[in-house]
Amino acid sequence: MSLEWMAWTWPTAVFFTGIALMLLAMTGLELVWPTVERRGFLPIRTTRGDRLFVGLLGSAYIHLGWLAVVDAPLWGASIVALLWMAVVLRWG
């Protein structure tokens, strides 16, 4: 089956593989170490999956905000997004 119609590129393939691996890792973690709802700095009680979702959504907005406002290479946004993900997953 040709996937040419999907117009794949290497960077987007790596991006989606990363997301898929993240979801697989979360499933594995859940089986070994079930999540417990807790309250961190976010104003709601969250599970591990909730925090991953907030982290990913926030990362998307950080990249968009960077493109809209900052006149610098995009990897700067990626560093900020990684920090945001780490903070949300640990203390969110």
């Binding site: 119609w5 117009a7 590129t9 987007t12 493109l67 809209a68």
Partner: peptide, 29 residues
């Protein structure tokens, strides 16, 4: 996934496309 792939390329037709990175996002924003 297909929309994400399209968003980083200039699509001229089937099999004819060029990588443009974040150019479209900057233009749209």
């Amino acid at each position: 996934m297909t929309v994400v792939n399209f968003s980083v390329q200039d699509i001229f037709g089937p099999g004819e496309r060029v990588w443009v990175g974040t150019e479209w996002f900057e233009e749209v924003l």
